[in-house]
């Protein structure tokens, strides 16, 4: 039995614990024995993206040490998986830590990538009657090039009609601290995305990053726009 270690990013931990619970449920259902190390905090991405490399390195180093013995790591965020798989390798690290960074990057998977390509499961045997749009978060799409995996899982849901957004490859405007440093631009970008979602006339928008969904949901709620968003594992987990 595979024993993937869950990486539950800070946003999921404090704001969206249901996503974490759904991931446990889903992985168990798919025959895994998921592990959770409660010592985990953050991968270091906020400081890394803000240019504070020392702060980022210290937090990243802690993460690497904590997960170095794990056989496989499954991330509940495409963006945090990118940090671990792509950006750790680009840090100025000591040689020993650099080895760990390479090793840890190789055994970390975004969860839909893990389910489809590691477990080899493309159909989890659930059904849903309605129109669903998948939101491509930029990191998962352009850094990890994971585009088909979440779609595969959604398309195999019986009765589900997967709708492509006309601005599918457009950023939602979140971008981490960018969202609060340049709220006007971030909002303008989010509004374009919301308009695209409205044109698609879907029941729900599903994604692999709660942060992007938080941006879209927050913008929609403020405007009184009717929008439902859900992390993909939560969406699928709820159907089990």
């Amino acid at each position: 039995m595979r024993t993937p270690h869950l990486f539950v990013p800070c946003i999921v931990d404090q704001l969206y614990p249901a996503t974490g619970l759904a991931a446990l449920k889903l992985l168990k259902k798919l025959g895994c024995d998921p592990q959770y190390n409660s010592q985990q905090t953050c991968c270091g991405q906020p400081a890394y993206n803000a240019g504070y490399r020392d702060d980022a390195h210290i937090v990243a180093e802690r993460f690497m040490q904590l997960f170095s013995s794990a056989e496989e790591i499954v991330s509940l965020s495409g963006s945090c998986a990118t940090m671990i798989k792509v950006f750790y390798k680009q840090m100025d690290l000591s040689p020993s830590l650099r080895n760990i960074a390479h090793e840890i990057g190789g055994k970390t998977y975004e969860i839909t990538d893990y389910i489809v390509n590691q477990l080899g499961i493309t159909d989890i045997g659930v059904s849903y009657n309605g129109r669903v749009a998948y939101h491509d978060s930029c990191h998962i799409m352009r850094e990890l090039r994971i585009v088909d995996e979440p779609r595969t899982l959604l398309q195999s849901v019986e009765g589900l009609k997967l709708i492509e957004l006309d601005l599918a490859d457009r950023c939602c405007g979140f971008g981490g601290l960018f969202a609060s440093k340049f709220p006007d631009i971030s909002t303008a970008m989010g509004e374009d995305k919301l308009a695209s979602i409205q044109r698609a006339e879907v029941d729900i928008v599903v994604g692999c990053d709660n942060s992007c969904l938080m941006q879209l949901q927050g913008l929609a709620d403020k405007r009184g726009m009717n929008l439902r968003t859900k992390h993909i594992v939560e969406f699928l987990g709820d159907l089990l």
């Binding site: 930029c138 352009r142 457009r170 950023c171 340049f182 631009i185």
Partner: peptide, 10 residues
């Protein structure tokens, strides 16, 4: 800093 680092440019 005025970028969400979405990578569409790259």
């Amino acid at each position: 800093f005025a970028s969400s680092l979405c990578g569409a440019c790259t």
